[in-house]
Amino acid sequence: MTSVEITERRKRATVKDVAQEAGVSRGTVSRVLNGQPYVSEAARSAIEAAIARVGFVPNRAARSLVMQSSQAIGLIVHEPHSLFVEDPNIASILLGANEALSEADYQLSCLIADSPRDVDRLARYLSGGLIDGVIVVSARAGDRITAAVAELGLPAAFVGHPRDIGDAAYVAIDNRGAARTITRRLLDTGRSRVGMIAAALDRDSGADRLAGFVDAMGARFDPQLVQSVPFYSFSDGRAGMRELLERAPDLDGVFASSDAVAAGALEALREAGRSVPGDVGIVGFDDSSWALRCDPPLSTVHQPADQLGRAAAASVLAQLRGDTAGSPIVLECPVVWRESA
């Protein structure tokens, strides 16, 4: 094969090539590619067959300029890289959103904000017209990404309910109510010295779970039995449990604000020679894969993370069709009781 022949084979097929192969005009090919009407079934079939024969791949960037649409939705996760990999809830939200977007022929673009530099970069990126809307996970109050989304008027849905998003769409669970319910269930087992490892208090989910714990404890609430940690992570759970045990060695119950935190707390209890649930009863939150990997398996709250992602994606797609953001969506999150308490 000559160099000229190799070059010809590597040359990207064009709309003109498809039109010639199918025996139709380039305008007819464009109408089919853009999903427009007024094309006969015979012509449509011929064009689809020609696309397969010449190996034509639509140029998304060029199409975006014409259609003023990228067919891409950004999923912004404001978490450290390590937590993005560790947290199964994030993966479930991502997969649920991707399923809904795929069904609508949209592409999911995953964007991680791990540092202030990432936040600045993403705020600039959002203004570039490369995505049509966003799903935002783990936003904090005062988040610059939230402000950028509002300034640009991007169709958006938040997973969770930061207090400063105005009337923007969001999908969530009742973190406060669920935390209150599972704490009361733990108290009903006869525990008298119940503490909490409270993670992520800079966002609505963490703050609401702490509020639910306080509600359930009532007059028995002791602020000395609450240990705050930065993230919903195994390592923070282990460190938080060690701190609690130093302050309150007579502790006999713990509400950990996520399953990953509870798994870390279990490790610290094991290191300290405490049995679960014999000496200490422990409950988590999420009903993630962490819950069943623990020994004993965790009593926890079921968070329908994949449904949260799917509902957020559906909300953004609805806004792109011209619908209003609509009412907030709050999904059920029942308690799942297992051996850890």
Rank of each mutant, 00 (worst) to 15 (best):
F285L: 00
D252Y: 13
W290L: 01
P328M: 06
D252E: 10
D252T: 13
S258C: 09
G240Y: 02
A272M: 04
E271S: 12
P304K: 14
P304G: 12
D250N: 09
V254W: 10
A265G: 10
R242L: 05
E243F: 01
S289Q: 12
P296D: 04
E332F: 03
R270S: 13
R321I: 03
P277L: 02
I329L: 12
R321L: 08
S327T: 15
A268N: 14
G237C: 09
E267T: 15
G309M: 08
F285D: 00
S315R: 13
A314V: 03
L269K: 07
D250P: 02
D287P: 00
D287S: 01
R238F: 01
D279Q: 04
D236L: 08
P304N: 11
M241K: 15
V283Q: 00
S235E: 12
G278H: 02
A313F: 00
R274V: 06
E243H: 12
A262R: 07
V316C: 11
A248Q: 14
S235K: 15
L331Q: 03
A325Q: 11
D250C: 01
G278V: 01
E246M: 11
G278P: 00
F234Q: 06
A311C: 09
S257N: 13
S315M: 11
A312F: 07
E243T: 14
D323T: 13
P297L: 02
D252F: 10
R242D: 13
D250I: 03
V261M: 04
S299W: 00
L308G: 08
T324R: 15
H302M: 05
A325F: 05
Q303D: 04
V276E: 04
P297E: 11
E243S: 14
Y232N: 06
S235F: 02
G237V: 09
V301Y: 04
D323C: 10
G264P: 07
A313L: 05
G264D: 08
D287N: 06
G326Y: 14
Q307F: 02
A318K: 12
G278Q: 05
A248E: 14
M241G: 11
S289M: 09
R293I: 02
A314K: 03
D252V: 12
F255I: 11
P334E: 10
Q303Y: 09
I282D: 06
L244S: 06
V254M: 07
S299V: 01
A325D: 02
S258T: 08
V301N: 03
E246D: 14
G264L: 07
F255P: 07
A318P: 06
A313E: 04
A262L: 07
S289V: 09
T324N: 10
L266P: 13
R247F: 11
G273L: 12
A325P: 01
A305D: 05
S299I: 01
G273W: 13
D295E: 13
P297Q: 09
L308V: 06
L308T: 08
V276T: 14
A263C: 04
